[in-house]
């Protein structure tokens, strides 16, 4: 319940409004891909941010944060050597263990790539345990493509497809929504696991298409976003029907989410 003091070791600007913080504390913070921490900006507040680091390197805590509110702006403004409070890790992980022996289709939209990065690093590190690996990634513009240099590196180990909604001159890649990339994914739907993260509307359309492709609902995993305050299922804010998304999620299979997401404003 109490934040542990961490210090900003490095800060890298990823996009115009997005930075990646590297944090170190008095002890490593082991985590599973897909889990999140509560990050506390001194005197400003605390928010849930997915861990975007490498699960094999828990001594460096990595978070990619986009400045959209008071707390995220404060976090993005932190400089090297400044303190930050960390509680976690919390929540359910991506099913990287259950996916062994199967194809894996990673679908990300915008900043949704950040929570998937630990899973991708895990999949690549243990490449031989999996079948085909594919990532489909959609961003608004070429300038919004996250982790650009890494995407090229990942391409050596997996099929990487990137699309943007609005191209600029010089963009040679795909244009359109991320669902348009799905038919290109070299996976066998009958023996594939999908890990999807992005805006909720994007995840709904991606799921619709994945189901049409023949992926079973229990193997389509989404990372859900709700207002998370306590992260331990006590404050009530993140409820989606019977689920507390902070502890029963954020990663849940479509088979559990479908009845809940079919109700407007649940």
């Amino acid at each position: 319940m109490q934040p542990r003091p961490f210090v900003v070791r490095a800060r890298r600007r990823e996009l115009a409004d997005t930075v990646t913080l590297e944090l170190t504390g008095d002890a490593p913070l082991p985590f599973s891909p897909g889990q999140f921490n509560m990050l506390y900006a001194f005197g400003v507040g605390e928010i849930a941010i997915s861990i975007s680091g490498d699960p094999a390197q828990p001594e460096v805590l990595r978070h990619t944060v986009r400045a959209v509110g008071r707390v995220s702006e404060a976090l993005c403004g932190l400089r090297r050597g400044e303190g930050v409070g960390v509680r976690g890790p919390y929540g359910t992980p991506w099913p990287v263990a259950e996916a062994e022996g199967l194809d894996v289709l990673v679908v990300a939209g915008g900043l949704g790539l950040a929570p998937l990065r630990p899973a991708i690093l895990h999949l690549i590190r243990h490449r031989q345990r999996y079948g085909h690996l594919v990532m489909c990634y959609g961003a608004r513009t070429p300038a919004d493509v996250l982790y650009q240099r890494e995407l090229a590196r990942w391409q050596r180990a997996m099929q990487v497809e990137v699309t943007v909604d609005s191209p600029v001159s010089g963009w040679q890649g795909s244009v359109g929504v991320v669902t348009a990339l799905l038919p290109r994914a070299a996976v066998d739907p009958a023996r594939a696991v999908a890990m999807v993260c992005g805006p909720e509307i994007m995840m709904r359309f991606v799921t619709r298409d994945l189901l049409r492709m023949g992926l079973p609902p229990e193997r389509i995993y989404l990372s859900m976003e709700r207002n998370m305050k306590c992260a331990i299922g006590l404050c009530g804010h993140c409820q989606l029907g019977p689920a507390f998304l902070c502890k029963d999620g954020p990663v849940l299979p479509w088979s559990r989410l479908a009845p809940l997401l079919s109700v407007r404003e649940l």
Partner: peptide, 10 residues
């Protein structure tokens, strides 16, 4: 919480 040279003291 207090801010000190080494970071935060909780």
């Amino acid at each position: 919480v207090r801010r000190s040279r080494g970071g935060l003291v909780v």
